[in-house]
Computed example of a mutant assay.
Amino acid sequence: MPRVLPEPSADSFDLTVILSALAEPGRRALMTELYRSTDPVDCAVVVEKADLGLSNPTISHHYRVLREAGLIRTVAEGRKRIVKVRRDDMDARFPGLLTAVLGT
């Protein structure tokens, strides 16, 4: 049974935490790949496309930071992790921020 991993509510988004999460180049590259897709995607597919050359623990850490900042929603389906950018929540709270930072 799929389960959504813990994430902050849109009302509790902290701009400092969001910008800090996006300041790291590896996380920004992951977010850019995710932002290009409007559909949920398997996190492993995004890592392959981004070709970051990072270890699996580092990539897992980056996904966790992005999720805890409220930038992505992660759904666990068995061993798979399906991720999606929380566009609507972000745009409602900070209009245009993701487009400005990610440049897409």
Rank of each mutant, 00 (worst) to 15 (best):
S55Y: 00
A69E: 09
R81H: 14
A50W: 01
P57L: 11
D51H: 07
R79M: 07
R64E: 11
R36D: 02
T99H: 12
T32I: 06
D89N: 06
V85P: 02
G96E: 08
L102Y: 11
L34R: 04
P40I: 03
T99N: 08
D42S: 12
R36T: 00
L30R: 04
L54S: 09
L102K: 08
T58G: 01
G53F: 06
A76T: 08
V41K: 07
L102S: 03
G103V: 11
P8A: 10
R93S: 09
E77Y: 08
L52S: 03
L22F: 07
E33F: 05
M1R: 14
K84D: 03
G26K: 12
A10Y: 01
L97E: 09
P57N: 09
I82W: 00
P40T: 08
G26C: 07
C43R: 13
A21M: 01
L34H: 03
L54F: 06
L102A: 01
K49R: 14
L98R: 04
A10V: 10
N56F: 04
P95K: 07
D11N: 12
T74H: 00
L98T: 08
L102H: 08
R27F: 01
T99S: 08
D14H: 13
C43G: 08
A10P: 05
P8C: 10
E68S: 12
P95F: 08
